[in-house]
């Protein structure tokens, strides 16, 4: 790692912070693009529902299977509902959903804005007297902050349901017992904590994707490399920040 690459990385971080600051400023002043916001909520949230449900259910199935057989050796099968539901709600659903959205939506946002950039559509937005941040970034940022927590909560719910099926079929844990254990284990702070983390990850994904879209050069090749850049960077930042957010939430609520 050379001095120049560190300098470049610092410059990128600085530009991302400035983009975020300018976007937040646009959030609290007119005009608002509610139509565009709804379009993005549909695109980011509603169109991601099916894949989120599949990931949630499969995570629940696999986790219950692994914990079930693992704990069975020590006679701890009855702890499966608590462990599965807590790990899904606090960590697995937020992380898996955010990584999925980083791949599916983050790359899409950066490719879309990048393509607009190289075909001068962003310049056209400016030349027509409008602010690209308001038109393009704010709707995507807000849609990510709304959609991602809801998708992760749904994913967690589906995971817990998936776990219920395997717990009953493989380990003869009654459904009523499973649900009672889940409800007594998961607290409202777990749900809000997960949603808070996902809202934060939503900001990370949308801001990185928009930033890279605006910086896209070199035609279609640039569009492709921007999409890759976003998925890699967003995934790394999500995973690292998850540790610190988890620590913060534990300090606050546990």
């Amino acid at each position: 790692m050379t001095f120049n690459s560190i300098k470049n990385d610092m410059k990128v971080i600085g530009e991302i912070i400035i983009l975020f600051k300018d976007t937040v400023r646009c959030l609290f002043s007119r005009p608002f693009y509610l139509g565009r916001l709804w379009e993005q909520i549909v695109h980011l949230g509603i169109e991601s529902l099916s894949i989120t449900i599949v990931i949630g259910v499969v995570t629940g199935l696999v986790m219950t299977l692994q914990f079930g057989y693992g704990l069975e050796k020590f006679g701890g099968t009855l702890y499966v509902p608590a462990i599965v539901s807590l790990s899904i709600m606090r960590e697995l659903a937020p992380i898996f959903t955010s990584l999925l959205i980083a791949g599916r939506i983050g790359s899409g946002i950066s490719a879309e804005i990048g393509a607009m950039n190289v075909t001068q559509q962003i310049d056209a937005i400016r030349a027509l007297g409008t602010n690209p941040l308001r038109v393009l970034v704010v709707p995507r940022l807000v849609a990510s902050m709304i959609s991602l927590p809801l998708l992760a909560t749904l994913s967690a719910f589906m995971g817990i349901l998936g776990g219920l099926v395997i717990a009953y079929v493989e380990f003869n844990i009654p459904a009523g017992f499973y649900l009672n254990k889940v409800l007594s284990t998961i607290t409202i702070s777990d749900v809000f904590g997960a949603m808070f983390k996902c809202a934060f990850f939503g900001i990370i994904i949308s801001i990185l994707a928009c930033y890279r879209g605006f910086k896209t050069r070199e035609g279609t090749r640039g569009v492709g490399s921007s999409a890759k850049w976003v998925v890699v960077r967003a995934s790394i930042v999500i995973l690292i920040s998850d540790f610190f957010l988890s620590k913060l939430l534990i300090l606050m609520f546990d």
Binding site: M116, Q120, Q121, A124, L128, G129, N131
Partner: peptide
């Protein structure tokens, strides 16, 4: 500033070489 230029750009308009239409 960029924000201050927006009203000016409704008076001075720009026709891009390739149209730059929103695709």
């Amino acid at each position: 500033t960029e924000e201050e230029l927006y009203p000016i750009r409704t008076k001075i308009s720009y026709a891009f070489q390739n149209g730059a239409l929103f695709d």
